[in-house]
Structures are given as C-alpha cells and as structure tokens.
C-alpha cells in the first residue's frame, strides 16, 4: 500500500487492521502527545548553587540557547517547574532546603545532577558536602564534568528527553515508593532509623 500523506505508513493494515497504522494524528495515542509536550516544554527551576550554576546560565544564554527546546522559561516558583537542575555542590546545610524545593515541585518532575560535586561530592570528600545528591532526591540524569560545559548539560537534557519519551507517563518511581529512600543516621550512636521522605 502506498504511504498516505496524513495517515503515514499503511502497509501492515491488511494483517493488523487499524493497529497496522503508523501513528499519525488520527490514530496516535494521547500518551505520546503528553510525552511530546513534556519534552518540548520542560521548565527548569532556578536552582543554581555554585560554579555549575554559571554554566547552566551560560547554557541558557545566546551562544547555546536552551530556548530551542522551550526551556528558557526558568521558573522561580518550584510549583511551576518540571525540572530541577542541581547545579553545584550541595552542602549539609542546603540539603534540607533542596529536598523541600523538590517536594514543592509538582509531578511529573525530573532531576538532573549537574557536575561531579552534585553527583558524588567530587573533589570535596569532606564533612561539609553531601556526597551525592541522589541521597536526597532521586536523580534521572547525571551530567559529568567540573563544571560540565554547556554542551554536556545539553546532552544531559537531551538524554532526559529521550527518557521521558520512552518512559512511563505516570508512576515513574513506583519501586522507590515515590521517595528517595533516605537513611537518617543518628550520629551519637543510637540505632539508625530508616525514614522514607516524600512518600
């Protein structure tokens, strides 16, 4: 069968019936539409912490232009943001705040851990830093580098887009009970209690 201009590839229609259609605007799933919209309009929260924040802003500026993916809308209010780019080192003092901002964001929400400090503590293996932001919030994509250049961040964002387009539309973290599974350890030798935050 010939390829129809609107309906797309129709060669399998004799075997599979209507399911044989390629997805087109008539038979496409609304799920795909939603995913498409999410990838094309993923508003980041302004969550700059350290050096990486500068590179994050540079990514939004003229040379690299995140606006191409509709991402220049950095939302100051976490309620309206979809993506939290943890750009920089997360200190012990900042950790609760970061978690609170994450909790204030509305589902669906994603997290990019930008730079090695956010991903693993980086070169600062010491008392002050959280050794990996994934102890606090669930991370979708890690961007390596110290700091990652704008190209690296864009790559991470594109990876995330791919993940969104291929992933589930809801219940993204069922296996984690929707939270990060944080261990809260008592420092004075009491028994450790596991507290799951964000359930």
């Amino acid at each position: 069968m010939p390829k129809l201009p609107i309906l797309g590839e129709t060669s399998n229609i004799s075997e599979d019936g209507l399911a044989g259609f390629d997805h087109n605007f008539l038979t496409g799933k609304i799920e795909d539409l939603v995913k498409w919209s999410r990838t094309r309009s993923m508003w980041p929260a302004t969550f700059g912490l350290a050096c990486c924040a500068l590179e994050m802003m540079a990514t939004g500026a003229a040379h690299y232009d995140l606006a191409r993916w509709g991402m220049e809308v950095f939302r100051a209010s976490p309620r309206q943001a979809d993506l939290m780019i943890v750009a920089g080192r997360v200190s012990q003092k900042m950790a609760p705040v970061l978690r609170q901002v994450y909790d204030q964001m509305m589902e669906p929400k994603w997290v990019i851990s930008m730079g090695v400090c956010a991903s693993s503590g980086g070169m600062f293996n010491n008392y002050a830093l959280v050794q990996g932001v994934d102890q606090i919030v669930p991370v979708d994509v890690y961007a390596p580098g110290c700091p990652p250049g704008p190209e690296t961040l864009m790559h991470a964002i594109l990876q995330l887009h791919e993940k969104v387009e291929n992933g589930e539309i809801t219940r993204r973290r069922k296996e984690m009970d929707g939270g990060a599974g944080i261990m809260v350890e008592q420092r004075d030798g009491q028994t450790a209690t596991k507290v799951i935050i964000g359930k």
């Binding site: 912490l49 350290a50 050096c51 500068l54 920089g88 080192r89 200190s91 012990q92 003092k93 900042m94 705040v97 070169m123 600062f124 293996n125 010491n126 008392y127 002050a128 830093l129």
Partner: peptide, 27 residues
C-alpha cells in the same frame, strides 16, 4: 548554604594540588 569545607580540604592537598581547590571558591 554553600559551605564546602575548602579550607579543610586545602590541608589535605599538596601545594601543587592546592590551586584546584581554591579556584572553585570565587567561580
């Protein structure tokens, strides 16, 4: 909120490695 313990880390790095540390202060 961005306390990184760089002065402590600076005591663990040799003089040659030191600039790696301090360069991340005023980024």
């Amino acid at each position: 909120y961005l306390h990184t313990g760089m002065e402590k880390t600076g005591e663990q790095l040799s003089f040659l490695q030191g600039p790696t540390n301090v360069t991340r202060m005023d980024y």
